[in-house]
Structure formats: C-alpha cells, structure tokens
C-alpha cells in the first residue's frame, strides 16, 4: 500500500494520522496504544506485525515533553508506519508492548535507560547500556553535559553546548 492509502486505512481507526515525506505517522493516546498496535497487526490488509524499533525524544518547555516512537514494518505488504505517543514531563509512564512484541524488551529497556520513561508491565525494566549505578537519564535535554578536565594547569574544556560553535 502506498503512504496515502495506508494513512487512509489507518485513519479509519486512528483520528490523528499524517503523511509527511512519504512516511505515515499515527498519533495515539497512551490509553489506546496497545489496542491500536493490535489492530494494526491484525488487519490483513495492514499487517504491521513487525516492530522494528522503539525510542523516544525529549522536548523542553512544551507538553508533551516526551514522544515515544514505535516503528512498524509489514513484510507481507512491504510498507511501514510509525505510531507516536506523547507523555507529559511528570508522568512518563506507558504500557509495555513487550508482551505483544518480545523484541520490545531491549528497546524499552534502552528507552528507559536514556530517558527514564517507565514501561508498565515490562518483565525486567533495568538499565541496559549504561552501568547499573548510573544517575540520571543522559538523553534528556536538561541533562548537564559536564566539562572535560584537561591536563593544562587551571584549564577546563567547557561542555559542548557552551563552546559557542554551531
């Protein structure tokens, strides 16, 4: 199915669907995430039954502060689509899709590791890439970047966002 047709078909179920640069994005509420993913998987003509990736992005001073992003692919129909869920800053909880897609296990752990988003119902929500005793969630935009101590006496290299380039 081409992007427009797919968006139209998904639009029968999800109110907020858009096509940009040939990619289909469906924006759903957190409460409807699981049923929407199940619907996308089970419609024979949509068959988005392969979860390629789960990740998130963080935005300061706007609501939702987090966008959780699910990349879906259909081997049968050779098309793909994305489902996005917005979460507020103080309420970064979302149901885990690991029971539905076992591959989500590590993706959700990584997203938790980087953003501190809690996936409710995940079998083992622990840090995956960072050390277990790491403090903070480094891909959040409000994480201090820190400076690099240098070997020159009295000098430090400022954090990259304070160097005045770019």
């Amino acid at each position: 199915m081409n992007a427009e047709a797919l968006a139209g078909r998904i639009g029968e179920r999800v109110a907020d669907v858009l096509v940009a640069r040939g990619e289909v994005t469906a924006i759903v509420e957190r409460e409807h995430l699981l049923e929407t993913l199940a619907w996308l998987r089970d419609q024979p003509d949509v068959a988005l039954d392969f979860l390629a990736s789960v990740t998130a992005s963080h935005w300061l001073e706007v609501d939702p502060a987090f966008w959780v992003d699910y990349e879906l692919r259909s081997f049968r129909h050779k098309h793909r689509a994305r489902v996005k869920v917005g979460l507020s800053e103080g309420d970064a909880h979302i149901p885990s899709v690991a029971p539905m897609f076992p591959t989500a296990d590590w993706h959700e752990r990584e997203t938790f590791d980087f953003y501190g988003i809690v996936f409710d119902g995940h079998p083992d929500l622990t840090r995956i890439l960072l050390p277990d005793d790491w403090e903070g969630y480094p891909l959040r935009k409000d994480q201090p970047l820190g400076g690099v101590p240098t070997w020159f006496r009295g000098a430090t290299m400022p954090p990259v966002d304070e160097r005045g380039m770019a």
């Binding site: 039954d49 392969f50 979860l51 390629a52 897609f101 076992p102 591959t103």
Partner: peptide, 11 residues
C-alpha cells in the same frame, strides 16, 4: 523458527 525470529525482531 520463522515466527520466533519475527517476534524477536531478527532481520
């Protein structure tokens, strides 16, 4: 098996 591979996201 194919089903296992798909569920685990293997490509």
């Amino acid at each position: 098996a194919a089903e296992q591979a798909l569920a685990l996201g293997v490509t």
